[in-house]
Structure formats: structure tokens, C-alpha cells
């Protein structure tokens, strides 16, 4: 059986076990990084925010464990810190108040991904699909996009999303509903709907 997050935290705090801390970071890296990528749409910025998130985590842990309690879920606490880091970044760039379509940044972050591994047609297809899907998500209203990212990237429950975003569960469910319907509409309206890997034509 895998070691729990709380046990890894205890190993780091009580035995200074940095391997345990590495396991903690790597275990949830996709959940945290995927959310940050969806929020800032830039890999370099997402890397910086990912690092900043865990620097804040380390600082909070060394400072009498900060706000983290072992009774709570580790990933929820980390995701709250990641969200604050992302919002701080977006506020500093005055991009959180309005819904950006990402066009002022030039190409999407998917274009900046290292393409050294794109050696097969399948990988090219996946990269194009990511680009297309990212553009669609980027066009969602901020609240809908955030709920979608927290649910699909960070794998939080709607109750956890509601607690994190300080809203009711019905509000979180309603934002998710609109996000899915809007995303479906944008996919079909796109001239690259074939990237969805699903026949979207007959549904409308």
C-alpha cells in the first residue's frame, strides 16, 4: 500500500526526509501543474508558479507548519496555495478581472512546449489537440474555467472546489455545467473539431 501524503509530510517534518518531500511533489505534480498551466497558459510561467507554490509550502511548513494540519488533505492545502499564487500572478498582470482570449500573448502556450518528442503522427495529433482544447478552455469565463481546471486537472471534488473558491456546491455545479456546454459549443464551432476524436456533428 502506498504511503499516505500525511505520512510523507511527517517523515519530512520529523526526520528531514527530503526523499519523502520529493515523493510528495512528484505524486501530485500533474494536478498542480495542470491547473497552473490552464490558468496562465504559459509553460515557463507555470513552472515559475509551480516552484513558487512549493516554496510557499516549504516556508509554511518550516514556520510551525503554517496553516497545514495533518487532519486535512495535503493536496487541498497545496492547491489552495497554488491558486493564491496563480491569482497573485494574474492580478499583477491585471488579467484576472476580465476574461482574456489569450490572443494578446501571441501564440498559445501549447506552441511553446518542447517539440523534441513530437516524432510520430500520434504525438503531433496530441499536441494539436492540446492546442485546440487549450484555446477553447481559454475562452471560457474565468469562474467557469477555474472550476473546470480544478475538477479535471486537480481532480478535486465539487465540495472541495466550493470550499476553495468560497461558493456553494450548487454554484460550483452550475459553473461546471455552463463550462461544459460552452466548451462543447466552441468545439463544434471550431474548424478543427476533428481533433476532438469524437463525432461532434450529430449532437447539435
Amino acid at each position: 500500500m502506498d504511503v499516505t501524503d500525511e505520512e510523507l509530510v511527517s517523515r519530512y517534518l520529523e526526520r528531514s526526509d527530503e526523499v519523502a518531500f520529493r515523493n510528495l511533489v512528484e505524486r501530485h505534480q500533474e494536478r498542480v501543474f495542470g491547473y497552473l498551466m490552464g490558468m496562465v497558459r504559459d509553460r515557463s510561467t507555470a513552472n515559475d508558479l509551480f516552484q513558487e507554490t512549493y516554496f510557499r509550502v516549504i516556508r509554511a511548513l518550516s514556520n510551525d507548519r503554517g496553516s497545514y494540519t495533518r487532519q486535512g488533505k495535503w493536496i487541498n492545502w497545496v492547491m489552495r496555495i497554488a491558486r493564491n499564487a496563480a491569482l497573485d500572478h494574474l492580478r499583477s498582470r491585471k488579467k484576472w478581472s476580465d476574461v482574456s482570449n489569450g490572443q494578446e500573448e501571441g501564440d498559445s502556450f501549447w506552441d511553446r512546449l518542447p517539440d523534441a518528442e513530437l516524432s510520430s503522427d500520434d504525438l503531433i495529433h496530441l499536441a494539436e489537440q492540446r492546442e485546440w482544447l487549450g484555446e477553447c478552455i481559454d475562452q471560457l469565463p474565468a469562474e467557469q474555467r477555474e472550476v473546470l481546471l480544478l475538477r479535471h486537472e486537480s481532480e478535486l471534488t465539487f465540495r472541495e472546489i466550493a470550499e476553495m473558491t468560497d461558493c456553494s456546491i450548487n454554484t460550483a455545479l452550475g459553473r461546471m455545467r455552463y463550462a461544459l456546454l460552452n466548451l462543447r459549443r466552441m468545439m463544434q464551432a471550431s474548424d478543427r473539431s476533428n481533433l476532438a476524436g469524437y463525432d461532434l456533428g450529430g449532437a447539435t
Partner: peptide
Amino acid sequence: LMGEAKFV
């Protein structure tokens, strides 16, 4: 419709 979006 929501199921298709979720699938992607």
C-alpha cells in the same frame, strides 16, 4: 452534450 465535452 456535456458528456461529449467531458469525454474530450
